[in-house]
Design a protein around this nucleic acid. Structure first.
Lengths: 200, 200, 200, 200
DNA sequence: TATGAATGAGACTTCATTCAT
DNA sequence: AATGAATGAAGTCTCATTCAT
């Protein structure tokens, strides 16, 4: 990779990082493109070399960060050699919850953008999921389910929605209970959902 | 009520209705206060007699429409004399789902604003819940639960989050399944959640 | 007319005058809307209250100034009770030439904008000739021609084009001859043109 | 000529042709250098190797195209062995009118740039007439006039201005009459102008 | 020669908000 | 209470030009 090529990527990275910082600090609303380029240390025109507008960079950020979250969880799962889909699902979800508990800023950013649950973003036109790996992650988890589950996609959907929507206020505001208190109830509910989808 | 008084309310109503129409049609972003007052047929300055800014009118709209949704559901429940908290919860949830299936625009508006689940808006500072009746609705449902449920608020939280986040794409995009197909699975999951909270 | 009404017109006038000054001094190209509002002493937003953009104000200026030129010439003609269409035409043309010789800035502005001759602007879509009085002026001159001229509109067209295009460099650069030297030749040519259109 | 040399000229040609196409299609205003280089298939920096800016390439285009027009007309005249300055002038003018009737895009481009008559461009600083052959063309026509004409340059000026300004709307919009209808009147007027300059 | 990423000035425009009427 | 002209800060975005490769 040439020097120019390298520099080019650095600028893009810098813009993405700065945008994330500002969006999470002040909200996308109160962040202007001027703010971003100023803090990123690039010229205004450069922004438009890589992104269409404020919402474009935001979407790219969401996809990027959310994908990383899932990728990391899958990676950890492989490292820990978890067996059986039930344990795999619970492992991945637990890993993601832990990651988001560690990184509340990311939780806020993702939840604000993915809105009502993670699944949603797979359908909305506003989010360009070119590099989306959430789907892949989901597929990867379902690989060894075989005939034991009636409707694996629907099952995953319900699990992800329940998880995604209930952890938010628990992690951020300890409402209605702290995340550690929520977890047993949540996992029990997830197990019930899996139960109801299992064939006999 | 004098004619002036009446006229005053009419203007406020007109502004609210027009704002709802424009917010749902073009998004709050692409709607300017100029747009609202123009279509509402009032002067720009008049807007500021009733609302602080665009976000203020939006919040008032969210609260108003969401409250009506819950109020109507409770009203229907009372009309139908449903007995037992389990049936009451399921009745109310079913009623709300039906209402939102009938009024997809409202579903979109509410979900966009309440974000990750209905419960969330009770905590967020952005939503001014002066006239909030969602809490009341919730309380009203839990009234006759007594000691049979360990942690009724947590239980309601999980039920509402699961419901709120999973119906969205089902109603709007039939994804991953149509709402009628989702309902049995959803209600079974809700029953399981109630089960796990019941004391022995 | 109320005070507000008055003030409103004053702002518009101020913008028009300042724009004319800057357009003629630096060219429309090198004049920004910022320049105009700054010198006119109004806010930038005010500009957009009255004009669509730089080209809109320019068109309105052209029409306004050119119309005044013709109106004044007709007015002078009436004051001097000129008899016969031949003398009327020559009187008006002479008056306009004299006015433009006195006001070279106006000559430059009009010629730059009307391009190839005055007649042209009556056809081009870019110039909104709502208040155009050039046509009226033309009609007014032709009123008493009757049957003596075969094709009065075509005759006027040729006379106006010849005049409009030939005086420009004569007045501004004394090229190829000074305007006083050009006049006799020009008027002789105009007379010839009239001759050729006279019936018998 | 080496291959590199050739390629070099090809790029310049490509830039000129593309600029002409875009200027006539969208106007010089709405054409950016980016547009030109993109369509011409060269890099942005390359543009600056050949031209100073957008206006430079425009001027070079005007001169080039207008010169060709005159050169061709003179060439045709020589091919047809026209005798006498009166017939020569009329032949050349007729030839140019025919060429422009055939190529309305060129007419538009030239008239927009030469503004009030062809003669003008010989004086304006904006047009760099390095390779100008219009003057030469003019001189060439006047060569054999000798003492028969009092002020040949002034005569040519009036003829060219009358022609240049009156054909525009006639050819493009058939206003006030079609070019074929205009021609006899125009040529009669030109003859009258020549008459008035002839000594005795 | 040729390239095209980067620049950054500044153009154009919108719009929330004010305030005199 | 109601108006809407005026404001001007702030935003988005373009584009001619440069320069390291």
């Amino acid at each position: 990779m040439g020097k120019a090529e390298e520099n080019k990527l650095k600028k893009r990275e810098s813009l993405l990082d700065t945008a994330f910082k500002l969006f999470t600090e002040k909200g996308i609303h109160n962040t202007s493109i001027s703010d971003i380029v100023e803090q990123a240390g690039v010229a205004k025109g450069t922004f438009y070399l890589y992104f269409k507008d404020k919402y474009d960079i935001n979407n790219k950020l969401v996809v990027h960060r959310a994908s990383k979250l899932f990728d990391d969880a899958l990676e950890h799962m492989r490292e820990n050699v978890v067996e059986g889909y039930r344990d795999r699902i619970l492992f991945v979800i637990n890993d993601i919850i832990d990651s988001l508990t560690e990184d509340k800023v990311l939780l806020m950013f993702i939840s604000k953008n993915l809105g009502l649950g993670f699944s949603r973003y797979a359908m909305e036109s506003t989010v360009v999921n070119e590099e989306s790996s959430i789907k892949e992650a989901s597929e990867s988890l379902l690989k060894d389910i075989g005939d034991e589950i009636k409707n694996p996609r629907l099952m995953m959907y319900m699990i992800i929605e329940l998880t995604g929507s209930s952890i938010y206020s628990s992690i951020l505001y300890d409402q209605p209970v702290k995340i550690d208190e929520l977890k047993p109830y949540l996992y029990k509910a997830i197990n019930s959902i899996i139960d109801q989808f299992e064939t006999e």
